[in-house]
Design a protein around this nucleic acid. Structure first.
Lengths: 152, 152
DNA sequence: ATCAATCGTCAGCAATACTGACGATCAGCG
DNA sequence: CGCTGATCGTCAGTATTGCTGACGATTGAT
């Protein structure tokens, strides 16, 4: 009995057995800690994410940055406004395509970014230290693998 | 040279080497898929999260449910309003403490929940299938471990 | 009996995603 | 060269959600 249709297959999962719950709350705790550590620099983890992409080498348009981070391009405007006001990034029109803004770190921005990135790295390493070095890189490998499969 | 202070220790991480990025985007993709699969039932993954806690056995107050999910108690009001309007949950005043609402699944709600939970489980298992059974449970184990440490 | 605390609710505010528009610019095509 | 459609950054408007602060009802401790 009790195998007449799919609903009966499901057992009741505790909320901490659900991958979505685990991902969301783990991210939440890590972001909370990162934001706290970044507060003295007047940056959020959201800001740092943008700076990381901008610092990543080749010149990026606003839309590139937004797309990588999964932020809407209309939200990116205000985010960059604040960073520009703080003297951390600069916009200039692309020479290849003058519709685009190329976003770059200023000299000050580079320094702030280096500090922020080191802070973020410290928080992250402290966060995962109970997993051991192997466990931590194993976790990263697994997550990267999931993202790669889903976006190919 | 270049070891005069901490900023220089940081190397530039690609965004997909940052744990916060990986957690956030992995969660995002999984939630997107779950919401899509749940749409025919007129439920979101947010709703299902609440139902999971409510279905989890002992009678729960609204605040209990909200706290477990990390949802604000003021947002839980509207969430439960919708589920109650749909005939999926019922509120009744607790007999031990009449300030509290005990939230329970209705008979209909139990059926909808079973279907939704099975759907969610299917989506999740499909999502992690590239990791293999070991990899998937290893991932869950690691995330649970991080959450346990941070909340003890 | 009184008083502080808790619960569910509501109103108001801030942050963010999303839509749809706009001007400027580009690429493709004749 | 001049059109036409698409793209980029921007802005206005709307919806969702978290947070604060309040409130009435209720509880528990004194």
């Amino acid at each position: 009995m009790s195998n007449h249709s799919s609903p009966e297959r499901a057992s009741v999962r505790r909320h901490d057995e659900v991958l979505g719950y685990l991902l969301k709350h783990t991210h939440f705790v890590l972001e909370e800690r990162t934001d706290a550590a970044l507060a003295p620099l007047r940056l959020t983890s959201r800001d740092l994410g943008a700076l990381r992409v901008i610092a990543g080498g080749e010149a990026r348009s606003q839309q590139d940055v937004a797309a990588v981070l999964g932020v809407d391009r209309t939200s990116m405007v205000a985010l960059l406004d604040a960073l520009e006001r703080a003297g951390i990034v600069a916009r200039r029109a692309s020479e290849q395509d003058r519709r685009r803004n190329v976003v770059e770190l200023t000299e000050t921005g580079r320094k702030v970014f280096n500090q922020a990135e080191q802070t973020s790295l410290d928080v992250e390493q402290n966060f995962v230290k109970t997993l051991g070095t192997d466990g931590a890189s194993e976790l990263q490998r697994a997550l990267r693998s999931l993202l790669r499969v889903t976006s190919q």
